[in-house]
Design a binder for these strands. Structure first.
Length: 524
DNA sequence: ACGATCACGC
DNA sequence: TCCGAACGTGATCGTT
């Protein structure tokens, strides 16, 4: 095997060049090693060149060996993993890049086997590259007319709020500046205790919420911030991101960013489109299907809590999911002793917060803040929770030491690895953080394994069934498809089945399917 | 250019 | 005494 390079940009006869490249890339007998295969697909596909026999991607290899190194520049990787004598300059940068890529591949493959991340690499990360590429290329259709109208409405509302804020503040200032707002709070003699790490008065949401009980100004600031955020980040930003050729928005799905194996989305981030507030939902309604199509959203129900049951083997939680109970209701009854329907309704809300909080190893302080309970009550709730779900307690207690014994490493169920050197740090605060990250990894990491596996299975199933649905987005536990109207029913069945059977664990996986003429109404 | 702060999602 | 819930992206401010 050998590394070679070809200077396409500096090539006079592009047509002849493409033909040459095609012969090499199309040939399934010639195994290819890339640095960033998804980018290669973006370059090759528009030229009509297929990439066959993708054998390795050193970018993915480096990520799976160390998901937190942040810098995956090819030369940096070379410095880390190659003997410096092998980094000798070649005739030019292209030649050196090709050379380093192949050398890295030879170095990293044995390391992957050693660290047992070859399975997640071969079964998940490498095969999902073309699926991610297809999603990026497909794009999401956005109704820019809806956004334009929304922009006008929001602008008027922001102007109205700004004037009212000036009135209450007694003078004009930059409402968008936390520092200037802090000064105003001081001038008005608001009792503000909380400070930021740099010593300034905090104007964070929870401070505003507290002040809002007594004053009008913070209430208006909260409204202003919400609108300014939604308008600036989404409504006004999206129209310029519509691709002129396709008329659609094409995000980039980053495969080598998140420490837990999740994808991330940039330019724009389509994984944080609002849904909570009414204004937010109006933005979501601007995301629509193409003519003749419907949007289909498929959500894993409680995937992280199901994984909590699976990895902790907690008998109560396992049984609850096996009987397809509402886990929040179960918690409301078992932990909060809800008996009547009224009690159940009220306690379910808090139970839900606790259930999710557990996955992040929430403490009494955090739980109190999010539920309105006193710290004392919150402490009691957590104790009761662990008394009910004893397996969860045992897992939380034992996992950090297990991870230390494994060399400060935690893994997802598919073998994805996260290094947490701070598990052995003498600084208690850093160590506590690492312990929370350790406990969270089996859930969040395994969830991302499963969703990626599901994407592979769905992709294969749609092809096998000759369905024309296009996968157009992944949002951690949700897949979004654009589906021709006459195939909606069959597609729904195929998608649900492929996702629910993506992997066998000790609890059933449940997928909820929703259909709609926009992303909001498609949410189940 | 960069850190700090804030707010959106899961 | 301090912190206080995991993983992300990005806008804005204000300083360098």
């Amino acid at each position: 095997h050998s590394a070679d390079y070809f200077d396409f940009a500096g090539c006079a006869d592009k047509e002849a060049a493409v033909k040459l490249l095609q012969e090499a890339f199309d040939n399934g007998l010639i195994e290819k090693v890339t640095y960033d295969a998804k980018r290669a697909l973006h370059l090759l596909t528009p030229l009509g060149i297929k990439l066959e026999a993708l054998h390795d991607d050193v970018l993915l290899q480096a990520y799976l060996l160390d998901g937190e190194r942040g810098n995956y520049d090819l030369l940096e990787l070379g410095c880390s993993y190659l003997n410096s004598s092998l980094m000798a300059d070649r005739e030019n940068a292209l030649a050196q890049a090709a050379d380093i890529t192949l050398q890295l591949c030879d170095q990293l493959n044995p390391r992957m086997s050693e660290m047992q991340v070859d399975k997640v690499y071969r079964d998940i990360e490498l095969p999902i590259v073309p699926v991610l590429y297809d999603i990026e290329r497909a794009g999401f259709l956005v109704d820019t007319k809806v956004l334009a109208e929304l922009s006008v409405v929001m602008d008027a509302e922001i102007t109205r709020l700004t004037q009212a804020i000036y009135q209450l503040a007694g003078r004009e200032f930059n409402v968008g500046s936390p520092a200037q707002l802090g000064d105003i709070f001081e001038e008005l003699n608001f009792e503000v205790s909380k400070r930021t790490t740099t010593g300034k008065i905090s104007t964070s949401r929870d401070v505003l919420d507290e002040l809002a009980e007594k004053y009008e100004l913070p209430r208006l600031i909260i409204e202003h911030r919400e609108l300014a955020k939604l308008k600036g980040t989404y409504v006004d930003a999206f129209p310029s991101l519509v691709n002129a050729q396709t008329g659609r928005i094409h995000t980039t799905l980053n495969q080598t960013i998140a420490a837990t194996g999740r994808l991330s989305s940039t330019d724009p981030n389509l994984q944080n489109i609002p849904i909570r507030t009414e204004m937010g939902r109006r933005i979501r309604r601007a995301f629509i299907p193409a003519d003749g199509c419907v949007l289909l959203s498929a959500d894993y129900s409680q995937i992280e809590l199901r994984l909590l049951a699976h990895v902790t083997q907690d008998p109560v939680m396992l049984e609850s999911f096996k009987h397809n109970e509402d886990i929040h209701e179960r918690t409301a009854r078992a932990v909060f002793k809800a008996r009547t329907p009224e009690e159940l309704k009220e306690k379910r809300r808090v139970a839900k917060i606790v259930n999710f909080g557990i996955a992040y190893v929430i403490g009494p302080f955090g739980l109190a803040q999010r539920t309105g309970l006193s710290r004392h009550e919150a402490k009691k709730v957590i104790e009761d929770y662990y008394a009910t779900y004893k397996g969860v307690k045992k897992f939380m207690d034992e996992l950090p030491q297990q991870a230390r014994d494994a060399g400060d490493i935690v893994r997802s169920i598919y073998g994805r690895m996260r290094r947490l050197p701070d598990l052995s740090n003498r600084n208690g605060q850093l160590r506590a953080r690492a312990e929370r990250e350790a406990v969270n990894m089996p859930m969040q990491g395994s969830a991302s394994d499963i969703v990626k596996l599901a994407m592979l299975h769905v992709d294969a199933a749609l092809k096998r069934e000759k369905l024309h649905a296009k996968m157009i987005l992944q949002v951690h536990d949700e897949l979004v498809f654009e589906v021709p109207r006459d195939e909606v029913e069959r597609t729904g069945t195929v998608v649900k089945e492929a996702m629910e059977q993506a992997i066998k664990i000790d609890v059933p996986l449940l997928v909820e399917i929703g259909l709609g003429d926009n992303w909001m109404s498609a949410k189940p």
